[in-house]
């Protein structure tokens, strides 16, 4: 069963992360690196996303013409910082992985539809 783990956080947390010094970032990256190493056998692919303001969104539902706007689709305080696609037995295994994630405020565990 495949799930996508969406690593979520707030804009404040994102800004705090961006403001961190290289000395502080080192241990943080090391922790996240360890998590990826420990779970390597279950991770199909994963990526960290660039800053939310690097996003461009194309809206196809606002009038006849596609509308291109600057910024991410999520407009509130929520930010998706990255993702991992995992292949595990069931939801409990996915939740067990998510509970040990060292890098952020929340992890959304979403099954990948199988049709």
């Amino acid at each position: 069963m495949k799930y996508m783990l969406l690593f979520c956080g707030t804009r404040e947390a994102q800004r705090a992360f961006e403001a961190m010094s290289p000395e502080d970032l080192g241990p943080r990256f090391a922790e996240v690196g360890r998590w990826f190493a420990e779970n390597a056998s279950k991770i199909t692919e994963s990526n960290q996303l660039d800053r939310p303001d690097s996003a461009t969104t194309v809206h196809l539902d606002r009038g006849d013409e596609p509308l291109i706007t600057n910024g991410p689709y999520l407009e509130g305080n929520e930010v998706i910082g990255g993702y991992a696609v995992i292949d595990v037995e069931n939801l409990d295994d996915a939740l067990a992985m998510a509970t040990t994630w060292p890098g952020g405020a929340s992890v959304e565990v979403r099954p990948i539809a199988s049709r």
Binding site: M1, E89, N90, L91, D92, L95, V109, P111, A113
Partner: peptide, 18 residues
């Protein structure tokens, strides 16, 4: 069905939250 919630008594390492 969609989230593949397992059947059966959970494994010991999952028991605390289940």
């Amino acid at each position: 069905t969609a989230a593949c919630i397992p059947f059966g008594v959970p494994a010991p390492e999952h028991l605390h939250f289940r």
